[in-house]
Simulated scan of single mutants.
Amino acid sequence: MRPPADVRAAYKAAPHLTHVELTWREGRVEHWLRFGRPAADQRLDAQRRIASFAPGSIFCFVRWASNAYGTIVSRIDIVRVPGPGDAYQTLPFVRRGGELLLSINGWPRVEKVLHAVDGVEALGLDPIEAAPDYWRHVHNRLTAGQVPRAYALDQHRAWLARRSIEP
């Protein structure tokens, strides 16, 4: 299924960016960003917009949907935007895709990820600055039914030091 013409036009306007389709229909379809810094933001109508991210950016995309019988989708993805020539995974509503640092389904586990994000913010840090390995850790622990460790300032300082010497 092809995206609508207005969405395709947004993709063509900035092909070097990764575009995330966000929809908000209260109580039915709620796609939103928990964190991330879009390079561009385009409102399509009252309920839809496209947030576009530059290569290397990290964002957290939450999807929730329901029907007359209850919740049908609860999902959270933390994604790093690939650069030109980088490998990436595809995922719904994200054009061209990205490197999945975390991908969790089911509201109880999604809520635990949201608490982990809150924990990073409680340290006075923007979650996009947290070590990507931390988000992988949270993914792996929750997938295994374990409790993830909290992010620590020592861990963050180590990440910043490692990042400063990586090519």
Rank of each mutant, 00 (worst) to 15 (best):
R2I: 09
P3H: 06
P3L: 11
P4A: 14
R8L: 15
A9G: 13
A9M: 14
Y11I: 01
Y11N: 04
K12E: 15
H16M: 00
H19D: 01
V20F: 01
E21K: 00
L22Y: 00
L22C: 05
T23R: 00
T23C: 00
T23F: 00
W24C: 03
R25P: 00
E26F: 02
E26G: 00
G27M: 01
G27E: 05
G27I: 01
R28H: 10
H31T: 09
H31M: 09
R34H: 14
F35P: 14
F35H: 06
G36L: 07
A39I: 04
A39P: 03
A39V: 06
A40N: 11
A40K: 08
D41F: 04
D41A: 12
D41W: 04
Q47P: 10
Q47C: 14
Q47H: 14
R48K: 15
R48E: 15
R48H: 15
R49K: 12
R49E: 14
I50Q: 04
I50T: 03
A51T: 04
F53Q: 03
P55F: 00
G56S: 05
S57H: 11
I58K: 00
I58H: 00
C60T: 12
C60N: 02
C60A: 13
C60S: 12
V62T: 12
V62Y: 05
V62L: 01
R63F: 07
W64H: 13
W64C: 04
A65R: 09
S66K: 03
N67F: 13
N67M: 14
A68I: 15
V73Y: 06
V73Q: 12
S74K: 06
R75S: 04
D77I: 01
I78N: 06
I78E: 06
V79E: 05
R80Y: 03
V81P: 04
P82Y: 06
P82E: 05
G85L: 05
G85N: 12
D86M: 13
D86K: 09
A87K: 07
Y88R: 01
Y88T: 01
Y88N: 04
L91D: 05
P92A: 11
P92I: 07
P92W: 07
F93L: 11
V94N: 01
R95P: 03
R95T: 05
R95C: 06
R96F: 02
R96P: 05
G97I: 08
G98C: 03
L101K: 04
S103G: 11
S103N: 11
I104T: 02
G106I: 03
G106V: 03
W107R: 12
W107Q: 10
W107C: 03
P108R: 09
R109Y: 12
V110M: 02
V110S: 01
K112W: 02
V113E: 09
L114P: 07
H115R: 15
H115A: 15
G119P: 07
A122C: 14
A122M: 10
A122G: 14
A122H: 11
L123F: 01
D126T: 11
D126N: 14
P127F: 09
P127Q: 06
P132H: 06
P132R: 01
D133N: 06
D133M: 03
W135Y: 02
W135L: 05
R136L: 13
R136Q: 13
H137C: 05
N140E: 15
N140W: 07
G145R: 02
G145E: 07
Q146I: 07
V147D: 09
P148C: 05
P148S: 08
A150R: 08
A150M: 08
L153A: 10
D154N: 13
H156K: 09
R157T: 10
A161V: 09
E166M: 14
P167I: 14
